[in-house]
């Protein structure tokens, strides 16, 4: 079995795992980080989105072994020292979630959007959300939350 070493939410991990273990299953089943969800089979719903070296990726579309040496952040690692990330705050403030299932992936994707496009307008935000499907909100409040968080995150940095 291949051995993999990585940092997950800041903690070093060093374990052996079957090569065929998908990153999402590794996070959920091996590390107990069940905030990252599986919503489809084809890499389209985005519920499994995590950050790999700071970039949004779909953890259902890579094997854990491919993350060897990488820094992974999941939804559980987004809040720092008990303080919610501004994107988490914005989702709550703007009612950008209902059932909550797509939410972790949506928030991880949203943080990545703002990192790349801090001044994204509504149209851009909607295009950037192409890889994340929500069935509850009609996206209306998600778009609002991301725009608002972008403004807040910009002000902070």
């Amino acid at each position: 079995m291949p051995k993999i070493e990585m940092r997950v939410n800041g903690k070093p991990i060093s374990v052996e795992t079957e090569a065929e273990t998908l990153l999402v299953h590794f996070l959920r089943d091996r590390l107990g980080l069940t905030g990252t969800h599986v919503g489809c089979d084809t890499g389209q719903c985005g519920a499994c989105t995590v950050h790999l070296n700071g970039e949004a990726v779909k953890s259902c579309t890579m094997f854990a072994v491919q993350a060897h040496g990488a820094e992974i952040t999941t939804i559980e690692g987004l809040a720092k020292n008990g303080k919610l990330h501004p994107m988490q705050e914005a989702f709550r403030e703007h009612h950008a979630l209902q059932c909550g299932f797509c939410t972790p992936g949506m928030i991880m994707a949203a943080v990545d959007i703002v990192r790349r496009k801090p001044n994204a307008d509504e149209k851009t935000i909607r295009q950037e959300l192409e890889g994340n499907i929500c069935r509850c909100t009609g996206y209306h409040n998600i778009v609002k939350a991301i725009a608002s968080a972008a403004a807040g995150m910009g002000a902070r940095s």
């Binding site: 089943d29 069940t34 905030g35 969800h37 999941t74 709550r92 009612h95 909550g100 299932f101």
Partner: peptide, 23 residues
């Protein structure tokens, strides 16, 4: 009043418990 949702905290922090999360 538009009271913010009590249930949101667990969902935005990935600490909800859906059936597949349970073993």
């Amino acid at each position: 009043r538009p009271v913010k949702r009590k249930e949101d905290r667990r969902f935005i922090t990935g600490t909800g418990h859906y059936t597949d999360d349970l073993s």
